[in-house]
Design a protein around this nucleic acid. Structure first.
Length: 628
DNA sequence: GCAAGGTC
C-alpha cells in the first residue's frame, strides 16, 4: 500500500488532524524517542486505499545564523554584517531539533508522497519549505513536484481537514522567500547594531546592572520601537503643561423630594477663561434669583442604547484583559494559557482570529459548561434562545486557529492554582458572553435651562442585561432618574457653583496600553509581543512599577542618542514599514533580493550615522552615566 | 554575548 507522509507544525495538530481524518479504532500511535508521536492509519484518498503517516515538527526546524567565522564579535566591522557579500549566513538544524530532522528523514524514506499540513500563515509556509528540504535530501522522488502537496485549512476540524485533502495545493514560494528575507534582515541588523552599541559602551561608561549581568545593548527591530513607545509617553508627560479650566455645576432636586439631589453637567463643559465663566455664572445666578431658585425641564430625550457583546477572544485581547483585570504580565498570562491548553482545558492560545469558523459546534462547547455553578443559570438562558444567537464576527483571521475558547469543563474542585482559575474563568466567561446577546437599555437625557445656559444629566435604565450577566469585566452603570422629570416639570435648584479644574497629563503606559499600541503599529506577533516586553525589561531599558512602564536611564539614553543622530529606529512605524515592503515579496510585486538590499542599505546608512557621531552618543550617555 | 519567528 502507498504510504504518504503528512507533517503538521506541532504535536497537537498532528494528533487532532489524525483523529479528524481517521476513525478512532483505525489509528496506531508510534512513539519516536520520548518527545514525538507518529500517527498511522489507512485512508481512502481519491478511491485509493493508502497509509497516512502523520508526524509533526515544533515550529521552525531550521535556524539562521552567520557562518561560524563571523559569529565572533571581533571578526569584522559591524557594517560588514549588513553586507551579504562580505558575511554569508546559513541555515542549519540546531542540536535540539536534530531528533525531528532524523525522524523526518526516517519517515520520508518509506513514503512516496509528502503532504504539508503546517499552519496556514506565512511562517507555516516557510516551515513547510524547511520540512520539504529535509525530506528531499533523503527521498529523491519527493523532488518531483507532483509528489508534494500543501494542505490548507482554516480550522483543525474534521470538515476542514477533509476539505483540505480535496483541494491540495502547492507551496507558495513567494511567501517562503518573504519569511527568509525577514529572517536575514532581522539577523543582520540585530547583530550589527547590538555589537556596535555594546562595544561603544564598554570601556566608556559604567553601567550598573542588577545581578552583575554583562552589559549588552541589544538592538532589535521589534524591541526598539517597543522601547520607543515607552519613552515617548514619558516625554509627553514631562512636556505636559497643565491648564486651569472653569465650569458651572447645577444641582437640582424634584419638587416632591428635596432629599434626592441630581448634579447636572454644563453643556459648555468647561471654559479656560475665568472671567468669561464668572460672567456667565453671574447671569445664571441672577436668573435663578428672579425665579426663586426654580426652573423647568426644557427637554427630555429618550433613546434606546445597545451595548454589544464582545468579539471572540484572540491572544492580544486575552493578554490585555488579564493585565487589566488581574494585573498579570502578558508573559505570565501566556504561560498559564499554554498550560491550560496542554492540559486540554482551552483551545490553542496563540491566535489572531476573532471569528469562529462555521464548522465549529458552539452549542456543544456551551453545554460543556452547564454544570459549573458559576454560570450554569446563564448557560440555560443561552440554550433557550440558541436559534437566534450567534457570535459576532470579528475582523481578524489567521486561517490557522479559532478564537480562544474552553474545550473542557473546569475540574469539579477547581484548579489548584489561582492563576489557572483566573485565566480559565476569563476565557470561559468571554466565550459565554460571545454566544449570548447584546445588552439593551434606555438612555434619558434631561436638559434644564438657566438663563441662556443649558445643563444636562444622563440616566440609564437597563432592560436586558444580556451578556453582562456573565461578563463582569465590563460595567454599564444604571442611573435611574425620577419619572416625574418630564418636559415642563418644575424643579428646585439646590445650588449653582462655579468650579475649577485642571487638565492632567496622560498616565504612563500600562501593559494593556503597550500591547494595544504594539498591535496597532504591527510590532511583533501575538506569540512574541510578550517576549519583546520582557526583553526590554531584562535589558533594563524599561521598568515596570505597579502596572506602569517607565523608561530607565539606558532606555532613555538609547532613544535620545538615536534621535540625536537622526537614526529613527525607535519610532513606532519603523517595523510596519519593513513589514509592508516584505509583503510585496509574497504578493509577487517585488524581488526578494531587491527588498533585502534596500532594507540593508537603509540600516547601513543608519549605522554609519551612529558611527560618525560617536561624540553625540558620548554626550547623550554622559548625561545619564559616569565615564570610566 | 547579537534578532524575530515558530513551538515545548
Amino acid at each position: 500500500m502507498k504510504r504518504i507522509l503528512n507533517v503538521a507544525e506541532k504535536p497537537s495538530a498532528a494528533r487532532e488532524l489524525s483523529y479528524a481524518l481517521a476513525t478512532k479504532q483505525n489509528i496506531r500511535v508510534r512513539e519516536v524517542g520520548s518527545r514525538l508521536k507518529v500517527y498511522e492509519f489507512e485512508f481512502d484518498l481519491n478511491r485509493e486505499r493508502v497509509t497516512m503517516i502523520f508526524s509533526s515538527v515544533a515550529g521552525h526546524i531550521k535556524a539562521l545564523d552567520f557562518h561560524e567565522y563571523y559569529r565572533c564579535w571581533d571578526s569584522c566591522d559591524q557594517l560588514a554584517l549588513l553586507d551579504p557579500s562580505k558575511t554569508p549566513v546559513k541555515e542549519y538544524v540546531p542540536e535540539d531539533k536534530k531528533f525531528l530532522e532524523n525522524s523526518l528523514k526516517n519517515e520520508a524514506r518509506s513514503c512516496c508522497k509528502l503532504f504539508l499540513w503546517l499552519d496556514c500563515d506565512s511562517e507555516g509556509e516557510k516551515i513547510a519549505y524547511e520540512v520539504l528540504d529535509i525530506c528531499q535530501q533523503e527521498n529523491r522522488s519527493l523532488r518531483i513536484p507532483s509528489n508534494v502537496k500543501r494542505a490548507r485549512f482554516s480550522a483543525i476540524t474534521a470538515q476542514d481537514a477533509r476539505k483540505a485533502l480535496q483541494n491540495l495545493t502547492t507551496l507558495h514560494y513567494p511567501t517562503v522567500s518573504m519569511v527568509s528575507t525577514r529572517q536575514e534582515i532581522d539577523l543582520r541588523a540585530g547583530a550589527a547594531f547590538t555589537r556596535f552599541l555594546t562595544k561603544f559602551i564598554q570601556n566608556r561608561f559604567r553601567i550598573p546592572l542588577k545581578g552583575d549581568k554583562n552589559v549588552i545593548l541589544s538592538y532589535g527591530p521589534c524591541q526598539f520601537p517597543t522601547l520607543g513607545l515607552v519613552v515617548d509617553r514619558l516625554l509627553t508627560i514631562r512636556a505636559f503643561q497643565p491648564r486651569l479650566f472653569y465650569y458651572l455645576e447645577l444641582t437640582i432636586s424634584c419638587e416632591s423630594s428635596y432629599a434626592e439631589k441630581y448634579v447636572l453637567t454644563w453643556d459648555r463643559k468647561h471654559l479656560f477663561d475665568r472671567y468669561c465663566c464668572a460672567l456667565l455664572y453671574e447671569l445664571c445666578y441672577s436668573s435663578l434669583l428672579r425665579n426663586n431658585f426654580h426652573t423647568t425641564i426644557s427637554d427630555v430625550k429618550k433613546t434606546s442604547k445597545t451595548r454589544r457583546r464582545p468579539f471572540p477572544l484572540d491572544t492580544v485581547e486575552l493578554q490585555r484583559l488579564a493585565s487589566r483585570e488581574f494585573n498579570f504580565s502578558s508573559d505570565k498570562t501566556m504561560k498559564v494559557a499554554e498550560s491550560l491548553y496542554s492540559e486540554g482545558y482551552i483551545s490553542y492560545p496563540r491566535t489572531e482570529t476573532n471569528i469562529f469558523p462555521s464548522t465549529i459546534d458552539l452549542s456543544k462547547l456551551v453545554l460543556l459548561q452547564q454544570n459549573d455553578p458559576r454560570w450554569q443559570g446563564f448557560v440555560q438562558k443561552i440554550m433557550e434562545c440558541w436559534s437566534h444567537c450567534s457570535p459576532r464576527q470579528g475582523t481578524k483571521d489567521d486561517k490557522a486557529h479559532p478564537p480562544i475558547h474552553p474545550i473542557k469543563a473546569a475540574p469539579k474542585r477547581g484548579f489548584k492554582d489561582k492563576e489557572f482559575e483566573a485565566i480559565y474563568e476569563l476565557v470561559t466567561r468571554r466565550f459565554l458572553a460571545c454566544c449570548s446577546i447584546d445588552a439593551k437599555g434606555y438612555e434619558t437625557i434631561i436638559t434644564v435651562k438657566v438663563g441662556f445656559e443649558s445643563f444636562h444629566i444622563h440616566g440609564l435604565s437597563i432592560e436586558e442585561a444580556g451578556y453582562l450577566q456573565v461578563y463582569p469585566y465590563e460595567h454599564w452603570s444604571e442611573r435611574v432618574l425620577p419619572t416625574e422629570f418630564e418636559e415642563g416639570t418644575s424643579v428646585h435648584v439646590v445650588s449653582l457653583m462655579m468650579k475649577e479644574g485642571s487638565t492632567s497629563a496622560p498616565k504612563p503606559l500600562s501593559e494593556s496600553d503597550l500591547l494595544g499600541l504594539m498591535d496597532k503599529y504591527g510590532i511583533g506577533t501575538d506569540a512574541t509581543m510578550a517576549e519583546h516586553i520582557r526583553k526590554i525589561q531584562n535589558r533594563e531599558y524599561v521598568t515596570k512599577q505597579g502596572n506602569f512602564f517607565y523608561p530607565m536611564a539606558l532606555g532613555l539614553a538609547l532613544v535620545e542618542a538615536f534621535e540625536a543622530c537622526e537614526a529613527y529606529l525607535a519610532r513606532p512605524t519603523s517595523r510596519s514599514e519593513q513589514e509592508r515592503d516584505l509583503r510585496q515579496i509574497s504578493q509577487g510585486s517585488r524581488d526578494a533580493s531587491d527588498v533585502l538590499y534596500s532594507a540593508l542599505s537603509a540600516f547601513t546608512c543608519n549605522l554609519q550615522k551612529l558611527q560618525t557621531a560617536k561624540n553625540v552618543l558620548h554626550q547623550v550617555f554622559s548625561v545619564h552615566f559616569d565615564s570610566i
